[in-house]
Design a protein around this nucleic acid. Structure first.
Lengths: 345, 345
DNA sequence: TTGTACGCGTTATCAA
DNA sequence: TTGATAACGCGTACAA
C-alpha cells in the first residue's frame, strides 16, 4: 500500500510571486484576468502558477469579500423521490451560476434542521433554501434568523408570513380539483387522510378537500378526516380506522394527502378483502414513481418538483444579488394524472 | 411588501470584546469553551455574545486552521434512486461528524465533473467523494488531483489503481451469481446488455457474465454482447438489436447491466408481441423501486446503496483525519432478489 | 504597469 | 487569567 507523499500545503499567490520575483498583487491580477497587467507578465505568471499547481483559495477570498458563492439546502427527506428531483432543479441553477450547494437532510427532525441552519450560517452561506420538517414547532427560530441572517427562501413546506418567500405548489387548488373530480363522478361519501397538522401542505390539502365538499354541499363526518402523517405505514393505520367504522359510516372514496399514504391505504383496503376502486375509490398526491406501476394505478396530482427547485433557487439567488428583491409566495401549478384507482378513467 | 431592515453585517468577536471592554482573545476563549477563562468572565461574554447575536465565522476559522469541515460529493445522476440513497448514507455520517456536504450532480458529463472538482478544491474541502460520469475519459486529471489535492475516495463508479480508495459493490461476483442462476435453471442461450465501456461497473458485470458462461462451457456469440449504456431507451435499442437477429441466433435469456436497461428491454420484447419470461427471460441489476412493481416483477441484484454511502464517507473521513489511512478497494456485498422475470421463481 | 500597506475574523503564541 | 501581536491568503486603495 504505497503511501502518498503529498506537499499537503497548497501553493499561494505569494509563493508564485516569490518564485517569479514579482509582487503578490501582480500574480493576483494576472490569475484574475485583470486588465492592468502586461501581457508578457500575465503569460509568465499563468505559466508559473500552473507549473506550481496553484489553486485559488476561496476561503481567503470569501473572508475578504464576505461572499462565499455557496447556498445551503435543507430537505426533510431524501428517500422520497420528490426531494431529489427538487434538488436536481436547484442544482441546475446553482451550478450554472457558479454557486456551490450544501445539502442537509433533516430526516424530519426539527432539531437537526435548526442545527443545520446554524451550521450553514457559520459557514457564511450566501442564502438558504428550506423545506421544513414535520415536527417544526418554533416559528421564532426562523423569525430571528430571517431578521438577522442571509436571505432564506422556503420551498414546498413553508412557514408563511414571517418575512421569507415561499415557493410552493398550488396545493389547495389541486386538492380541490381532485376532490371535485371524484364528486363529478358521482361519489358523495368521501374521506380525507390528512397530513400532520402544522405543515402547510397538509393544511392546504385539507382546506382544498373541505372547500370542494362544501361547494357541492356534501357532508363530511368528523370521522372522515383522519390524521395520517406522510408515510405509508401511517396511511395503512389511518385507513384501518376508516374501515373499522360501522358500515353506514364508511366512506365510498378517499382523498389521501400523498401517494405513500394512499399506498398504505390501498394495502389496508385490500387486506380486508375489498377492492380498489370497486369498493373504495382512492386518489393520492405527488405522482410517486410507483403510482402508475401498482396493480391498480393511482390517480394523483403530479408535482412539478424540478421546476419547483429551479424556481426556488432562482428566487434565492435573486434575493442574494438584489437587496430589493420582494418577498413573494409563488405557486407552481401541478397537473392531475387520472388513472384507474378513482374508478373514473 | 415590507422590506427587511437588516444589520447585514455579522457581529464579530472584536465587537463583542469592545462592548465588554475586554480583549478579543478573551471572547474567543469564552465562546470556544477553553479552560483558561474565569467562570465569571465566560458567563458575561456568553451572555453578551448571545445578546448581540454573535455567530462564529467559520470562514475565518478555516483560513487559520486550513480545515473547513466540509466534504464534496459528486454524483453522475440524481434522478436514479440509487444515488440519493447513497447520499443519504453519506449524509448520515458527515452529519454525525459535523461535516457539511457539498453536493454536485455532474449529469454524466465529465466536463462538469472536472469543473466541480476544481471548484470544490478552491473551496478547500477536506476531502472529496466521487462517482465518475460515464464519459470520464482522462485518468490523468484524477492522477494529478490525487497527488496534490485533499483525500479522494471513489464510490460505485471508480477509477482503480491510481492511488485512491474505492468503495464499490461486488459487481463481478454478483453478475456471475445471477448469470449462474439463469444457467442453473436450464438456460443456455444467454445474452448480455452491457454498460458503456470504460466505466468499471460495466466492465465488471460483463466479466462476471463471461466468467459464468465460460465456467459452464456455454457459447457466447459476439452478437450477444450488446453495448447499451445505462438508460431505459438504450436498453430498448439494444434489445431490439437482439430481437432482429435471425431466429437461430436469438438468445433465450438476457442479463441486463442494470434495471432501467432491463425495463427498456422488456418493453422492446413486449412490443414484439413476445412475453417475459415465457419467450425471453431477463434479469437486471440495481433493484430499482419499480422492479417489483411491474407486471412481470424483475429478478435483480439489490445494491446496498445506503451502506455504500456510509462506508465511503467513513473511509473518506478516516483518510482526512489520519494521514496513514491505507488505500483500499472495498466491496460491499449485494444480494439477489429472485422474482418472476427469470422464469425460475 | 507594478508595488506597498492594510484589513477581512479568527486563533496560536508569547508576554504580562 | 488576560492581553498584544502575528499570521492564515487574498484583494482594495493608494502610491510609485
Amino acid at each position: 500500500m504505497a503511501k502518498k507523499r503529498k506537499s499537503d500545503k497548497n501553493v499561494t499567490l505569494k509563493e508564485v510571486a516569490q518564485a517569479l520575483g514579482v509582487s503578490t498583487m501582480t500574480v493576483s491580477r494576472a490569475v484574475n484576468n485583470r486588465t492592468n497587467v502586461q501581457e508578457n507578465t500575465r503569460k509568465l505568471v499563468i505559466e508559473k502558477a500552473r507549473e506550481m499547481g496553484y489553486t485559488p483559495n476561496h476561503v481567503a477570498k470569501s473572508l475578504v469579500s464576505s461572499k462565499t458563492y455557496t447556498i445551503g439546502v435543507i430537505i426533510p427527506q431524501i428517500s422520497h423521490a420528490f426531494f431529489p428531483e427538487v434538488v436536481r432543479g436547484i442544482e441546475e441553477v446553482t451550478n450554472s451560476m457558479d454557486y456551490q450547494l450544501f445539502l442537509t437532510n433533516s430526516g424530519e427532525s426539527f432539531e437537526r434542521e435548526k442545527k443545520a441552519v446554524d451550521a450553514l450560517r457559520s459557514k457564511r452561506v450566501d442564502g438558504i433554501l428550506v423545506s421544513t420538517s414535520i415536527d417544526m414547532a418554533d416559528y421564532t427560530f426562523y423569525q430571528q434568523f430571517i431578521s438577522t441572517g442571509p436571505p432564506l427562501v422556503f420551498f414546498d413546506r413553508c412557514i408563511e408570513n414571517i418575512g421569507a418567500s415561499c415557493i410552493g405548489v398550488n396545493d389547495e387548488t389541486a386538492s380541490m380539483q381532485i376532490t371535485e373530480h371524484l364528486i363529478g363522478h358521482g361519489y358523495k361519501r368521501i374521506a380525507h387522510l390528512s397530513g400532520p397538522p402544522g405543515v402547510t401542505i397538509g393544511k392546504k390539502r385539507l382546506d382544498g378537500f373541505s372547500s370542494a365538499m362544501k361547494k357541492h354541499m356534501l357532508t363530511v363526518h368528523d370521522e372522515w378526516i383522519v390524521e395520517s402523517g406522510f408515510r405509508e405505514e401511517e396511511g395503512f393505520k389511518a385507513m384501518t380506522r376508516l374501515l373499522d367504522l360501522p358500515k353506514n359510516l364508511r366512506p365510498r372514496a378517499v382523498v389521501a394527502v400523498n401517494d405513500p399514504v394512499a399506498f398504505g391505504a390501498i394495502d389496508a383496503i385490500q387486506k380486508r378483502g375489498l377492492s380498489v376502486p370497486h369498493d373504495i375509490a382512492i386518489v393520492g398526491f405527488t405522482n410517486d414513481i410507483r403510482a402508475e406501476l401498482i396493480s391498480c394505478p393511482l390517480t394523483t396530482i403530479h408535482q412539478p418538483a424540478y421546476n419547483l427547485g429551479k424556481n426556488a433557487a432562482e428566487k434565492l439567488i435573486k434575493s442574494i444579488e438584489n437587496v430589493d428583491e420582494p418577498i413573494e409566495n409563488v405557486e407552481i401549478v401541478s397537473t392531475m394524472k387520472i388513472r384507474s384507482s378513482c374508478g373514473c378513467a
